[in-house]
Amino acid sequence: MSLSAAETPAPDLTPGLTPAQQARRAHMGLLARARPDDLARGLAGLFPDLPAHSFLRAPEVGAVMVQGRTGATGAPFNLGEMTVTRCTLRLASGEVGHAHVQGRDKAHATRAALVDALMQTDAASDVQGMLDGLTASEATRRRARAARAAATKVEFFTLVRGEDQ
């Protein structure tokens, strides 16, 4: 049988989101995946002191049950939990920021929520510059991993046997 299929496109997981929601989804994911040190350094570069804020929900460590799908495509099942820290805060200017980040780092969750709130303010373009830096360092990390994997791809070659000649 032939397996020479065209590249299957990734399904659109975000149907019906507005461009603003798409952008918020993108930066919240980026913040959750960012190395805590990278985010701390980036934010400190823009705001030596954290912008004034009050917690609507103080950083809280909890567990999220991670689900898989039977046979990769079928019915969901519970694979196991992961640690997650969530935080909701309000800037002095009123904007509300949310964060749900992997792990137990409350300072990281607080910074992620701050950035989410700041992206709704006039500081958004400056903050976007920092986010671009996080995107670049994530892309570098991913490329390094993918490059090592690619080097282990098997190149098959066929041995010509005498009787076929």
Binding site: P11, A63, Q67, G68, P76, E81, R86, R148
Partner: peptide, 23 residues
């Protein structure tokens, strides 16, 4: 330890077709 954690929610099912494969 995990019994001490509040359960925040369940995730969406993982999309393993989107996996960044190393193997």
């Amino acid at each position: 330890y995990r019994t001490t954690l509040p359960r925040l929610a369940a995730s969406l099912p993982l999309e393993s077709a989107d996996m960044a494969c190393i193997r």
